[in-house]
Amino acid sequence: MAKYLVKRIGFIIVSLFLIITITFFLMQAAPGGPFASERALPPAIEEQMNEAYGLNDPLHVQYFDYLLSAITFDFGPSFKYAGQEVTDIIKRSFPYSLILGLEAIFIALSIGVLLGVIAALKHNRFGDYTAMVIAVLGISVPSFIMATILQYIFSIQLSVLPVARFESFAHSILPAVALATTPLAFIARLMRSSMLEVLNSDYIKTAKSKGLSQRVVTYKHGIRNAILPVISYLGPLVVSILTGSFVIEKIFGIPGLGSEFVESVTNRDYTIIMGTTVFFSLLLLFSILIVDLIYGLVDPRIKVARSGGEK
């Protein structure tokens, strides 16, 4: 197990190194710079700023500086928000994204699994069709449309929830629901098909013929096996919800990290681009690792340590 972990962490470091390198060179290759603005600066002042931010150093020096800053996780100040440290920006905006993301994942998982199971149990009956109509709608309606519709219904028409911003639990409901729609629909479909497969398998038939009640068969033998694909989807889901919340954060005026991530690219704010990229990569790599470990716990057939060792 320990050997497996060390190996996986080794992979994480290598991937991180590749990510930083690619990001750095893409960032440098993109036209425009952090100080470009509608009002061109006097050349002398622009020169002083380039000097102060180390943009005049040769490329390889800048590259090693970034590598170093990634290792120490100290990216220095933002270019656009004069004096604000990148780590402070991440620290203050990540909690918003985290709360929003967790809420969305909770909604997506609970309702998605529920819909999927209902659909599978009522296969080709009314329940199945209802659940799948909801799922198809969820997948095909983009989250920003969903957000506007939710705002219109619950804030403007019914006046029960605030339009935007992120102050209390009430504020978080609409963005979380809007963010959860697509993954919810995806999970429902995933759950339905894998549940159907499981329900038709031999051991379920055995369990049924042994005389176990429908409930025990469904919950104990069915769901536990059927949920495996959903778990493997969790890793990418966590990251896509955390990084993909940009649109939702913008519509609801939430000061989260997703918008910071996207805006830094538009602003060519090099230090923030680096900081958020490294942060999100770490998040992605570790959540995949954790999902793999959980997988081993849920499904005893997979021996994490041994299979890792054999490879």
């Binding site: 705002q151 804030s155 339009v163 935007a164 911003r165 519509i251 005026g253």
Partner: peptide, 18 residues
Amino acid sequence: MYMVDDENTAFQMFNNGE
């Protein structure tokens, strides 16, 4: 002074009295 980036959202907030 709120920092709501989306114009449509800000307009909705205005209509809603926020």
